[in-house]
Computed example of a mutant assay.
Amino acid sequence: MIHLQQLSKIFRTKKDEITAVDNVDLSIREGEIFGIIGYSGAGKSTLIRLLNMLERPTIGEVIVAGKEMSTLRGKPLREARQNIGMVFQHFNLLWSRTVFENISFPLEIARVPKAERTKRVNELMELVGLSERANAYPSELSGGQKQRVGIARALANDPKVLLCDEATSALDPKTTDSILDLLVDINQKFGLTIVLITHEMYVIRKICHRVAVMEDGKIVEQGDVLDVFRQPKKQITKEFVKQMAEQEETLDTVVPLLKDHPSGPIVKLMFLGEGAEEPVITHLIRQCGVSVNILQGKISRTKDGSYGTLFVQLQGNTSHIEQALAFLRENNVEAEVLTDV
Rank of each mutant, 00 (worst) to 15 (best):
M214P: 09
I2C: 03
Q5G: 11
S96A: 13
F271E: 05
T19H: 08
A152Y: 05
V267S: 00
N331H: 15
V312M: 02
D260Q: 13
A326E: 13
V255C: 08
L94G: 05
R120I: 00
V341G: 06
T250D: 04
I294Y: 01
F229C: 08
N187C: 03
S263K: 15
G223A: 08
F311Y: 15
G74Y: 05
T309D: 10
I63E: 05
R117G: 00
L93N: 04
Q6R: 15
Q82G: 09
V292A: 00
R133T: 04
S306T: 11
I236T: 02
V24L: 03
F11L: 13
T253P: 02
D304H: 13
R29F: 08
D177E: 14
S139I: 14
L93V: 02
H261G: 07
N23H: 11
D172F: 09
S300I: 10
T198G: 10
I33E: 14
T58Q: 07
V241R: 03
A335S: 05
A134H: 03
E221T: 04
P262A: 04
C164D: 04
L192Q: 04
R205L: 13
V341P: 14
I36V: 13
A134G: 04
L72N: 07
I266C: 09
D165M: 08
E17W: 07
S263T: 14
K242F: 13
L127D: 06
A167P: 07
P173E: 07
I299H: 03
F311V: 05
I10E: 15
G35M: 04
E32H: 06
Y202W: 15
E68F: 12
D185S: 13
E166I: 06
F105R: 08
N52P: 11
N102A: 06
Q188N: 09
L180A: 09
A20R: 01
P57C: 05
V203I: 07
F311G: 02
T176V: 05
D260L: 14
G297Y: 06
A20M: 10
H3T: 15
R329L: 00
A65T: 07
D185L: 12
N187T: 02
H199Y: 11
V312T: 09
E322W: 03
E215L: 12
L284D: 03
G85S: 03
R97S: 07
S8P: 10
A170V: 01
P159L: 04
E68I: 14
N187Y: 01
I37M: 06
A115S: 11
D158T: 11
T13V: 13
L192H: 03
L314K: 01
M214L: 09
P232M: 13
L196Y: 12
Y137N: 10
K9Y: 11
A42S: 14
C288Q: 10
E239L: 03
D25H: 11
I59C: 12
K218M: 09
E132G: 01
L314H: 00
H283C: 07
E334N: 12
R153T: 00
L51K: 03
Q315L: 00
V241F: 00
L328F: 09
T46Q: 09
H90L: 03
V203N: 06
T237K: 01
L257V: 06
E277T: 15
E246F: 14
L251R: 02
Q5Y: 13
D177L: 15
R210E: 14
E101N: 12
G41P: 06
G41I: 05
R97K: 15
I219S: 08
E278Y: 11
R111F: 09
